Simulated assay, not measured.
Amino acid sequence: MSPRKKILVVEDHLPLRTALEITLPDHGFAVVSAGDGQSAVQLALAEQPDLVLLDIMLPGRSGFEVCQELRRRNSGVPIIVLTAKTADEDELLSFQLGADDFVRKPFKMEALVARIKALLLRVTLKDSPPRIVFGSFVLDVAARTLCADSRRVDLTPREYALLEFLALHPGQAFTRAQLLDRVWGPDYEGTERTVDRFVTTLRQRIERDPRNPQHILTVRTHGYEFAR
């Protein structure tokens, strides 16, 4: 039997922290918890959890500071930010600081557990680079190649990076700002229209009918998502 995945719960609201401490073990997870930012950093480094659930509004060091500190220490632990804050800027900042997912409170426990499992699966796939099949295409993450009917499709490095990122997160919608941050990097100074131009080019390469795409889908008023 494989060992249970360990989750670090960082939440200062005791009723919610207790609920997570009770619910997550029922789904096969081991749990350690902290109620403030400083303890969270110490526990993350000492316990080496498989995933962190991180509240933003914490006593002492904020969740933003905790996330930044863990990434500064080269911790690659997956981080899901939990917050009652609703501003889009908070979501964007979370991703810029290295968070992997962002969940607004209140949330359903079942939905949170599903996100945890999905993120842990993505990390597993990342550790063992997959070959992603969609339509007649095969995206080989280890070789960083795209082939169609055994013939290589030439992509620029940035085109490949955008396609790979979307393909590794099927069914998950990303804003243009999030894609700029995750694919181009936080220091990129271009506009969100850059994403649209690259999506148009990718559709011309992988879609049977670029005007009616089946793989890189537009999510109205939001951005893009990938479908296999």
Rank of each mutant, 00 (worst) to 15 (best):
A148G: 11
S128R: 13
C147F: 01
A143G: 01
R208M: 10
Q68Y: 10
E207C: 04
G76F: 09
Q172T: 12
P130D: 00
H169Q: 12
A177K: 13
V183Q: 12
D90S: 04
Q68P: 05
R220K: 11
L53M: 08
F134R: 04
L166W: 00
V10A: 03
P210L: 07
K5P: 02
A46R: 07
P25S: 10
V41H: 02
L120V: 09
D127R: 14
V77H: 02
P130M: 05
V153I: 13
P106E: 02
T201Y: 13
Y188D: 13
F102P: 09
A177N: 13
L70V: 10
T218A: 08
E69W: 01
R122L: 02
M109A: 08
L92H: 07
P49H: 11
P210H: 08
P25F: 03
R144S: 15
L163W: 10
H222I: 12
P49F: 06
E189R: 14
F137W: 09
D101G: 05
R152K: 14
R208D: 15
T86Y: 04
M57T: 08
A114Y: 06
I132G: 00
L54M: 11
R220M: 05
R211C: 11
L70E: 06
D127C: 10
L179S: 03
I7N: 06
D88P: 11
K105C: 10
L125E: 15
A87D: 15
H27W: 12
K108I: 08
G35E: 09
V195C: 05
G35A: 07
M57Q: 06
L54H: 04
D181H: 12
M1G: 12
P213A: 00
S75I: 07
R115K: 10
G28P: 09
E159Q: 15
F226M: 09
S150E: 15
F198E: 13
L54Y: 09
G28C: 10
F134C: 07
R72S: 14
A142I: 03
V81P: 02
L16M: 15
E21I: 03
L179G: 05
A30V: 01
P3N: 11
S150A: 12
G190S: 02
L163H: 08
R193S: 13
K117N: 13
R203K: 13
L8A: 07
E207V: 09
R122E: 13
E89P: 05
V32E: 07
F226Y: 09
E91G: 08
K5D: 15
K5M: 10
G35H: 07
P129I: 04
A167G: 07
L14H: 03
Q42V: 10
A30K: 11
E21C: 13
L51N: 00
T23R: 06
L179H: 04
D149Q: 14
E65P: 01
T194E: 15
T145E: 14
V52K: 01
N74V: 01
P130E: 00
L82D: 04
K85D: 02
G171T: 04
G98V: 01
F107N: 11
D149Y: 09
D88V: 15
H215Y: 14
T200D: 14
R122P: 03
T218H: 04
D140G: 08
L202P: 08
D100Y: 06
S94I: 06
I116P: 12
T191A: 14
R203T: 13
H169E: 03
V52Q: 08
T124H: 02
R61G: 00
H13V: 06
L93S: 06
K105Q: 12
A84Q: 05
V183G: 12
